[in-house]
Design a protein around this nucleic acid. Structure first.
Lengths: 335, 335
DNA sequence: TACTTCCATTGAATCGTTTCATTCCACCTT
DNA sequence: AAGGTGGAATGAAACGATTCAATGGAAGTA
């Protein structure tokens, strides 16, 4: 059914080798021949079979990227940064969405390996990196994204989440708030755990300050709204006076719940700060204070590191790149 | 370097055919043999080569999807819907982002064809569908997403954008507004053109009403902000009293510009309505009225249609599925 | 004219998996 | 004991592009 080089070769009265040369090294072929082959390709509607190319080449021309949540603009931005960088080397980024589910993550990684990608970028869920380590040992470059490897055996590009958590909590404490709540989860996600830890450090520095953890099932707008409703239902004296949300999606959901009901004011009654500083943070009901991460730069750098690892082959050494987060103050904390 | 079935076969003292059977039809192989092969696979760290599988199979197990903008939650949602449906058939969705650039769109479509995908879902930019039609003629199922084919020669799943535009403008007019402005562009994007057309129809029905078009380079938050600043700089009497944004991203940007400056109130001075009803619309500074489109359903239905076309082979007939949009009223129009 | 150079072209071998017609073998029937 | 049955395993062929050593031939040199 489909047209192959063989048929193109026949139609142009040349050998298959020549057709291949026209496709890949046209300068090595006489102009008249190029012309003839090209028009045969056009006439027959020949389309290269990528599977065959890749089989021969031994590698695909892509990089795999697994993110926790494509609906989170932070990750979309990371992906864009990665794409930009990959593009410069003629590579494509395959985007996988784990939806914070370890099984989906594994499935994507496995599929990427079967596709013989140049390497894999992962924002992994749990702390079990054994599988990724084995992948690396099998020769596939792996770079953790938005996350450091605990034992430094894998490369990573991340932002210091402990520092970010500390920054957020210190800001709230600096405003005089004392009853802090952290909203986020599940705590199996390292970013979440680190941000809690950082917040805890800041809170520990201030006598009389407390940090409550309100756990969520996921880092989504919907979960944020639910958490907000839960806070609303409490007795007035029982509510936190400041909330640090694990990411902006949650913060936006919290805002919806808190503000829409009209009973509580942000920031007067409850100050709110998010994380990531996505585009929508500045446009929220109450413009959202947040901790900014250089999303696109993370993606860009991760691909960079990946390609360096791929070039170094066996004798690579894992490298950890850590960016510092930045506090962005808006109306949701400073009315 | 890499381990192949041949080596697994040798290690397990069976033939390559048996290894393949273990992988694909384990019930056809004696349990003891399965065991032996599996452990050989494990020992050697064998990983199937997808390129070889696909070459043999003649097709990939994916569907290509090209969207106008991945950063637009509307398209993310479409993609999710498509993924869900594809998953049910064991297929994967390859996501391409044209960023409203025709060249990037073509590049993705070409790459998808080389990958021998089951079909291609495209939200095309211009009106030149010749290339897609030729693709369809070469036997690759094509379904337009969020867009009808003008001549009905290609299948499509869309929402009636003219109706949506009419709905939005009628709502604004119903509130007593007369100086309407449409913000959006480039008009080469059909959705934009249709929404303008629909708005024009509604405006035409009301004597004394006018519709100005404020053109943008793209449908992004940033462009919306720029358009908002432009409106702010006008003399008070020269400003529209209602704005219909081509999508929610623009509307969010407009809001940022209009409200942050404190001079103009939404909706009192300017009523604002967006399009798509993304999650963030409800959480905006001023909760955003919008025209809702069933994003996930569009993706789901598009894959459905694609698979049907693929099954019907040559004697398929293009089918147009059109959903109706829905007006969602929030504070940005009705204070 | 004989010989070398160099460019264009050739075509068989290769990548790794799947398929399928064939072979093998053990067990059952009569 | 001969023949039959069916489950298990085999291995060569095929998928389609690329590569590379080999070949052909034209132009250039002595």
């Amino acid at each position: 059914m489909a047209v192959s080089v063989r048929e193109v070769a026949a139609a142009a009265s040349v050998s298959v080798g020549t057709v291949s040369n026209v496709l890949n090294r046209p300068d090595k072929v006489a102009p008249a021949t190029v012309e003839r082959v090209l028009s045969a390709i056009d006439d027959l509607g020949f389309v290269r079979n990528d599977a065959a190319r890749q089989l021969r080449a031994g590698r695909s021309r892509s990089i795999g990227l697994v993110v926790l949540d494509v609906r989170n603009p932070f990750f979309t931005e990371v992906a864009r940064g990665a794409e930009d960088r990959a593009d410069a080397d003629g590579l494509t980024v395959l985007l996988g969405n784990s939806d914070e589910d370890a099984a989906r993550e594994s499935a994507y990684v496995a599929s990427f390996e079967e596709q013989r990608v140049h390497g894999v970028l992962v924002s992994p869920i749990g702390d079990d990196l054994a599988r990724l380590r084995r992948l690396r040992e099998r020769g596939v470059p792996v770079v953790l994204v938005d996350r450091v490897a605990p034992d430094g055996v894998l490369s990573s590009v991340s932002v210091d989440d402990v520092a970010g958590g500390r920054l957020a909590a210190a800001h709230l404490l600096g405003l005089g708030r004392r009853k802090l709540a952290f909203v986020g989860g599940p705590s199996g996600i390292r970013q979440v755990a680190d941000r809690i830890e950082g917040a805890g450090l800041s809170v520990g520095d201030v006598p009389g300050a407390s940090l409550e953890v309100i756990s969520t099932e996921a880092l989504t707008v919907l979960e944020g709204r639910a958490a907000g409703m839960a806070v609303l239902e409490r007795a007035a004296g029982d509510r936190p006076d400041a909330v640090f949300a694990a990411n902006d999606l949650l913060a936006v959901g919290l805002l919806q719940a808190l503000v829409m009901h009209g009973e509580l004011r942000v920031p007067q009654d409850i100050a709110l700060i998010g994380y990531d500083d996505i585009d929508f943070a500045a446009a929220a009901v109450v413009p959202l204070s947040s901790i900014r991460q250089p999303a696109a730069l993370i993606g860009h750098t991760a691909v960079d590191l990946l390609l360096r690892e791929a070039a170094d082959g066996e004798r690579f050494s894992a490298e950890q790149i850590v960016f510092q987060p930045e506090l962005i103050v808006r109306a949701s904390t400073v009315g």
